Simulated assay, not measured.
Amino acid sequence: MTQAVALRDVRKVYGRRSATVAGLDGVTLDFGRGTFTAVMGPSGSGKSTLLQCAAGLDRPTTGEVLIDGEPIGGLDETALTLLRRDRIGFVFQAFNLVPSLSAELNVGLPLRLAGRRPRRSEVRDVLAAVGLGGHAHHRPAELSGGQQQRVALARALVTRPSVLFADEPTGALDSATGREVLALLRGMVDRDGQTIIMVTHDPIAASWADRVVFLADGRVAGELNDPTPQTVSARVNGLEATACAPC
């Protein structure tokens, strides 16, 4: 089966000559279609670098990234921009909504940037899917933090992306609102077959995923299927203890 995203011996090096740091060091991973994967690890383990390379936001130094079975390393910047616009969705800790625009206009923005005039029905449908069908005309300041994140999710989903990348999507939310957003993500996977790759530091957030991938020093340090908060916490604590052993 073709994977939604695949990394093959991906290495990302920062710096030059003797002053180099490997953000990723030979990472090979598969992310199946219709799965929810959390990526965790200590600070500096390579989580954000993995997300950026996997999503085509940054180019690996060596190795290969494939989206829907197609290698993206040979794409020029224009083709990469089209890939990110049409086949990849992004959700971040910061909602990044345009304050002066309504929820409806914020959601339709990616389509307008692509030169399409959004149909009101498709925008309303995706807002309804995230539980905001009655908030189309509200501006961000008139919405709670959780509602703003739902608008950001709707904006990421309006292009019907192959994969949704989420970087700490509940980091700015209280625990109750965070659970609502995580339940929404879980439902997108179970109901709609959406593929989600989420970077998080929170064991509770990670427990909503099908699988947790752990990174340490830019390398894969293990995986955990059917995670619980307890099993995730134990694994993270072990990685942090190993990282601090020489301290």
Results as ranks from 00 to 15, higher is better:
178 G>F: 14
208 W>V: 00
210 D>I: 00
213 V>K: 05
174 D>M: 05
208 W>A: 06
230 Q>A: 15
181 V>Q: 07
226 D>K: 09
215 L>N: 06
195 T>C: 12
187 G>I: 00
213 V>S: 08
194 Q>P: 09
231 T>W: 13
176 A>V: 05
174 D>N: 03
197 I>H: 07
227 P>S: 00
202 D>N: 14
188 M>H: 12
205 A>E: 07
185 L>T: 03
187 G>Q: 11
215 L>H: 11
183 A>S: 14
174 D>L: 03
191 R>A: 09
210 D>W: 01
195 T>N: 05
218 G>V: 02
205 A>P: 15
193 G>M: 11
208 W>Y: 15
221 A>S: 09
208 W>L: 02
184 L>D: 00
181 V>D: 00
213 V>N: 07
204 I>V: 15
172 A>W: 04
203 P>N: 08
212 V>L: 02
179 R>T: 05
210 D>F: 03
190 D>F: 12
226 D>N: 10
213 V>P: 10
178 G>H: 11
210 D>C: 01
228 T>W: 02
180 E>N: 09
180 E>I: 07
200 T>H: 12
187 G>P: 04
224 L>K: 05
185 L>V: 03
225 N>H: 15
197 I>K: 11
199 V>R: 04
221 A>E: 08
216 A>W: 03
184 L>Y: 07
182 L>K: 03
223 E>C: 02
180 E>M: 09
197 I>S: 06
183 A>H: 01
226 D>W: 01
230 Q>G: 08
224 L>V: 05
212 V>G: 10
212 V>R: 08
178 G>E: 14
193 G>R: 14
186 R>A: 05
185 L>Q: 09
223 E>V: 01
231 T>M: 10
212 V>S: 06
187 G>A: 09
182 L>E: 04
185 L>Y: 08
199 V>H: 13
193 G>D: 13
183 A>V: 00
228 T>R: 02
216 A>G: 02
174 D>K: 12
214 F>W: 06
208 W>I: 01
231 T>P: 14
220 V>W: 11
231 T>N: 15
183 A>T: 02
182 L>H: 04
204 I>R: 14
226 D>H: 12
197 I>T: 06
224 L>P: 12
229 P>D: 00
211 R>K: 09
186 R>T: 04
185 L>A: 09
206 A>Y: 08
214 F>N: 02
184 L>F: 06
211 R>D: 02
213 V>E: 10
192 D>I: 07
206 A>Q: 08
216 A>V: 00
214 F>T: 04
182 L>Y: 12
197 I>L: 15
177 T>P: 15
209 A>K: 02
184 L>M: 04
208 W>D: 01
231 T>A: 12
200 T>Y: 09
183 A>P: 00
193 G>W: 14
173 L>G: 06
218 G>F: 13
207 S>T: 05
191 R>E: 13
188 M>W: 15
188 M>L: 15
185 L>W: 02
180 E>K: 15
189 V>G: 08
200 T>I: 04
199 V>Q: 06
227 P>T: 01
